[in-house]
Amino acid sequence: MNGRDSIDQLFATSREFEPYISDEGFTAGVMARLPAARLIPFWKECLITLAFTLVGCLVALYFFPAGQLLSSLPSSFVISPLTIGGLSALIALMAGSTCWAVETNRI
């Protein structure tokens, strides 16, 4: 190899005859090592959950003997601070569990 442009020429030849390296499972190998994918996008997941919740609520409303239940309820409630605290704790627990389940892909 002599001459000032010999290296450029050598690389030009190498570039011209660069072989195509066939995949032969390379892509599959990479994909197997990626973190698990969501089957559907998160926003679609939320939309489907919301839609089914609404359908569930409507069905429940239709079949649930709401009038009968209301008539059997006492006419007045006494809500103590303990009841409020208990209800708040229950709601917080449910909200926390839902968040955790969503964040850790358990839903």
Binding site: D23, F26, T27, V30, M31, L34, A37, R38, P41
Partner: peptide, 12 residues
């Protein structure tokens, strides 16, 4: 979308 299919296309 965390689309694996799209990433596989980029890898290929």
């Amino acid at each position: 979308e965390k689309s694996h299919r799209a990433f596989a296309e980029l890898v290929k």
